[in-house]
Amino acid sequence: MAKMIGMSRGIKLEWLDKTVDLIIEGKNEEDIKSELNEYLSFEIKSATNLRKSREILMNIWVRTADDVEEIKEFAIELCKRECSSRRVAHWCMMLITYPVFSDVCSLIGKITDMQEKFKTGWLKQKLFDFWGESSTLLHSTDKILQTLKQFGAIESLEKGEYKAKTYEVKSEAEESLIAMTIIALNDKAYYEVSELSSIPQMFPFRYSISHEMLHNSELFALNNFGGKVVVTGKD
């Protein structure tokens, strides 16, 4: 997928829920677009901001790339069965749709693994190193932090300072979706099983992906590489 910034608006959990509900109801793309326009208009008065917010929602859940269609279908089935799993499903879909969201989460996950707090100035400088300095990236970073706050993934401390919050993942289906997403991000050609439970992009979630779960699933392939068991997605 092309590297794009794209996340120019803060996104609320309930907006993502609404988008998924429309998909589950069997609405087509044009109907979803129309219904989101009406739904968002109660909160967003600016036509430009409404359009940008709607397009982000559509990109995350409707206009998905072919190579992640399996993940989307799995995530939708998870949303149908377990409403409590929607936070994980939305998170995974945002990671695979917006590389800048993935990079922000990776940086936050890495630093909060070492210390309790992080500052926005540090985060923005690290992102500038990856993406190049631009007003678009600066604006997007603020909106992503706003999204993370609305998700309950981070909380404000002092001005410009945050700490991460965590949620326990309780179902094997959620763990499977997390593993599928990690592999789809293509940060590595393969992962050792133990690595899957400590990926920084998944910083808000406490989970443990077991060898047994991967072995019993039809979604993953386990192989021996250099004397270690590694996991990939099945072709």
Rank of each mutant, 00 (worst) to 15 (best):
K165E: 12
K149Y: 10
I154L: 00
M180F: 04
T141D: 13
G160H: 08
E158N: 09
E175D: 01
K188R: 15
T181D: 10
S176F: 11
I183N: 13
E168Y: 07
L145V: 01
D187G: 13
I154Y: 00
V169P: 07
A173F: 07
M180S: 12
K165T: 07
G160D: 10
Q146K: 12
E168Q: 10
E174Q: 03
D142K: 05
A164Q: 06
D187Q: 14
I182S: 07
A153C: 09
N186C: 10
A179Q: 06
K143I: 05
K149D: 10
V169I: 05
E174I: 04
K143V: 06
T166V: 06
E174R: 00
I183M: 15
E174Y: 03
D187M: 13
L185R: 15
E155G: 03
S176R: 15
A184C: 12
E161P: 04
I183R: 10
L148R: 00
K163V: 00
I183E: 14
D187H: 14
Q150Y: 01
E155K: 01
K170D: 11
L185A: 11
T147V: 08
M180N: 10
D187T: 14
E158T: 02
G152K: 01
I178E: 09
S156T: 12
E172R: 02
A164S: 15
A179P: 04
T141F: 09
K149L: 14
A173S: 13
I183W: 13
L148S: 05
I182Y: 05
K165W: 04
A173L: 12
E174N: 01
I178T: 08
D142Y: 00
G160E: 09
K188E: 15
A179E: 11
L177Q: 06
V169N: 08
I144V: 13
M180G: 13
D187C: 10
D187A: 12
A164D: 09
L148A: 05
Y162E: 01
I144T: 11
K188M: 14
Y167E: 15
K165R: 10
T166G: 02
A184N: 15
I144M: 13
K159D: 14
M180T: 11
S176H: 14
E172N: 03
I154T: 02
K149N: 11
T166D: 04
L148P: 04
S140A: 04
S176V: 14
E174A: 01
K165I: 05
A179S: 08
Y162S: 00
K159M: 12
L185D: 14
E155H: 04
E175W: 01
T181S: 15
E172D: 08
A153Q: 03
E172C: 02
E168C: 07
K165S: 06
I144E: 08
A164F: 03
E174L: 03
L177E: 13
T147L: 06
D187P: 08
S156G: 11
E175Y: 00
K149W: 05
K170T: 14
T147R: 04
T141R: 09
I154D: 02
A173N: 13
L177C: 08
I178N: 07
K143F: 08
A153H: 02
K163M: 03
A184V: 11
G152F: 00
G152Q: 00
A164N: 08
S171W: 03
K149S: 10
E172A: 04
E155P: 03
K163Y: 01
K163A: 01
